[in-house]
Amino acid sequence: MPRTLNGVTSAFAPRLWGGHLLALLLVAATLALGWWQYSAYQAQRAAESRDLTHAAAKPLTSVMGGNDPFPGNEVGQPITATGTWVGGGTVFVSGREHGGREGYWVVTPLAIGTPDGSALPIVRGWVASLADAPPPPSGTATVQGWLQPTDGTGEVDTDRSDDVIPQVRTADLIQHVDQDLYDAYAVLDLSAVRADGEPDDARGLVQADLAELPPPAGGTGLRNLLYAIEWVFFAAFVGYVWWRWVQERIQEVSTVAA
């Protein structure tokens, strides 16, 4: 029985170009949709992280004690702490970015409870240069901020004689104070400090950015992640159908020729 010669001998035959183009467009479209869903997944998680930093503040003493290891599920938790400023222990942490500029964090320990109690390093704010830093605070205070785990980049303080350190690490900070330190630090909430007027020790400071945001719940954005996986799968499926289609076109020729 005569049959129309529908097939080709090569996958690159001009009559298949239309199909190739369609397949490429479909693969591109499915991958783009997958990427869109994956971006939505990441955006949702980032948004929830930011939301968690607006949670109600807890007293530091209920979150961790002076000798406790950092509570891993309290990263970025808003806390309040009451104590005595250890002004003499003020240090500057170099290489901190804010709005794309490198500057310093101004850190002063706050001895929690009694003046000789364990101190929590408080990042009071960010300055572009050391000359902009306000004088250290003194006396007792109740502060509000976000709890952060100390850095552990392993960077070495190359000049131990000054008050500039490369990271917020207990081993470096301990050189500048006479008491124990918490295994954590807090980033001061400057908006709370400036709620009623600008104190001298906050003048010129810029709110420091959190190094680590709280982790979102495991299920956050899960739908978008599952959709993203689906789209990648469909991209693979289009590729498979494409391949099958070319194979069948080529086979038709050999069947007719045989």
Binding site: R223, Y227, F237
Partner: peptide, 15 residues
């Protein structure tokens, strides 16, 4: 949430 279930079952259906 069943949209997700539909999507995944549809994936198998397509194959």
């Amino acid at each position: 949430i069943l949209w997700v279930a539909h999507g995944w079952v549809f994936m198998i259906y397509v194959v």
